[in-house]
Design a protein around this nucleic acid. Structure first.
Length: 427
RNA sequence: GGAGAUUUACCCAAGUGGUUGAAGGGGUCGGUCUUGAAAACCGAUAGGAGGUGCAAGCCUCGCUAGGGUUCAAAUCCCUAAAUCUCCGCCA
């Protein structure tokens, strides 16, 4: 949600900024509503004040033995007249809210406009692995090593699902545990949130109303709930409608959850088992900060996500996304993309974003500023740290050896009973 | 799933139609006393959103939320949510 005051003061600036997000809009109508709304508000409130005054005079008049029926009439008359204005006010407010809710966040000034094609790689770690033998893709490796069972996944769940088996399950769990231990080391608070969330949470995160169709809604609960598409949705709502203590900021959380998403259409077979199915595992970080601290927090989150991939020893790059490629609620996003040798492209394993006060406004998350004594909206930021669904295949492919085995990245070994190499199953 | 109870400010809590934005207590902050602290005493402190104004201020909305009745609602009515208790269910 954008600040109506900002639009009122600098409509041209906001309009131009949103253009970078490929969002063309016109504020003239909104601003005329805004003007009319404030005029109506004045009339409605003045009438109410008059009604309050008259009503309050009743007890005294009664005590004095005066006839109060005249006062009743007066108030009724004003109320009747006012009802009209109130209805109109409500109508305009609703229109304005609808308009404002649909607007995306304003991208940071330093971002270039346009879509994906304008994303820019700003950092590269390691280099593309070279294989002196015929390398295998992750599906082949996962199958031959008995790590993932795609067929049985389809059997028990249907299309778009797979089963981690044996060392595959252990590898997946080791990844998650590695991430968790790193975040704990950095002083982040571990959260295990509910996976079934209410509508309001989706709205505050900015996923609704635009992406109502992209999540799974559950039958049988009233009011309806949905399966979280990312732990961000839960974490960013933890302090909804709260005034946080300044001393508590920055508040640093992380959570592990599966993420449930409807993915329309099919994916290329070469990306099988990697592109998100309906469910994938992710550890997600979220920070609540004071406005002046969010840039620093953003760098911290990007750094943390990158360090995880780095410690895993994987070749990856960081992309600064163009304004049009970052999601609706965000002002700034960097993607961390790991290299997948079999298809020769980089795939997102983490997306770090600064929502600034966009989500906080929707959720009314504030803190009291000790200097002014006033409440201010916090800034919210999030970053995956990390999603496993691309890390897992990247490890298999980047760490594969000629004999078909896969070396376990060193940092994961403590979480896998010291296992160093995953070897093909003997038949 | 069934039955009942509850929801008032930072916390506890009074308040069943009228100058009640809300008694009282605790807490917090300041002070007196004290070498210091505690205790006691004195004083201060009531959230939040919005409109208007240079400002002081004024006005509107706020007693879980949303409706309604009424000249007037924390108080009456309806709906919803959350919490608690008992019963049922529980892979």
């Amino acid at each position: 949600m954008l600040d109506i005051n900002l639009i009122r003061e600098k409509p041209e600036y906001v309009k131009e900024a949103l253009k970078k997000k490929l969002w063309d809009t016109d504020f003239t109508e909104l601003l005329s509503w805004d003007k009319e709304k404030r005029e109506l508000l004045k009339v409605v409130e003045d009438n109410k004040a008059e009604m309050n005054r008259l009503s309050a005079s009743v007890p005294a008049a009664k005590k004095a033995g005066e006839d109060v029926s005249k006062i009743f009439m007066q108030v009724k008359e004003i109320a009747k007249k006012n009802a009209e204005f109130e209805a109109k006010l409500e109508q305009i407010s609703a229109k304005m809210t609808e308009f404002l809710e649909a607007l995306p966040n304003i991208p940071d000034d330093d971002l270039v406009g346009g879509g994906k094609e304008n994303n820019k790689v700003i950092h590269v770690y390691g280099k593309k692995p070279e294989f002196k033998f015929k390398m295998k893709d992750h599906v082949e490796l996962a199958t031959s090593l008995g790590l993932v069972d795609y067929d049985r996944g389809a059997k028990v769940a249907g299309r778009g699902s797979w089963v981690y088996t044996n060392l595959g399950a252990q590898l997946e769990w080791a990844l998650l545990n590695f991430f968790i231990s790193e975040h704990l080391k950095d002083g982040y608070e571990f959260i295990l949130p509910p996976h079934l969330l209410n509508e309001q949470s989706g709205y505050v995160a900015g996923q609704f109303p635009k992406f109502r169709e992209d999540v799974f809604w559950l039958e049988g609960l009233e009011p309806q709930r949905f399966l979280l598409p990312t732990a961000e949705t839960a974490l960013v709502n933890l302090h909804r409608d709260e005034i946080m203590s300044e001393d508590d900021l920055p508040k640093k959380y992380f959570a592990y959850t599966p993420c449930y998403r409807r993915e329309a259409g099919s994916y290329r077979t070469e990306e099988r088992g990697m592109i998100r199915g309906y469910q994938f595992d992710k550890v997600e970080m979220v920070q609540y900060t004071k406005p002046e601290d969010s840039d620093k927090a953003f760098e911290e989150l990007v750094g943390k996500a990158a360090s995880l991939v780095e410690k895993l020893g994987l070749h990856f790059q960081i992309s600064k996304l163009a304004a049009g490629d970052i999601s609706h609620s965000m002002a700034r996003t960097y993607d961390i993309e790991v290299y997948i040798p079999s298809i020769g492209i980089y795939k997102e394993v983490s997306s770090a974003s600064n929502a600034r006060d966009y989500q906080a406004r929707r959720g009314r998350v504030r803190y009291r500023d000790s200097a002014t004594g006033k409440t201010r909206f916090v800034h919210t930021l999030n970053a995956s740290g990390l999603a496993t669904s691309r890390v897992f295949p990247a490890i298999l492919e980047q760490y594969q050896q000629e004999d078909g085995s896969v070396v376990v990245p060193e940092v994961l070994r403590p979480f896998m009973g010291g296992l160093e190499v995953i070897r093909p199953i003997k038949k």
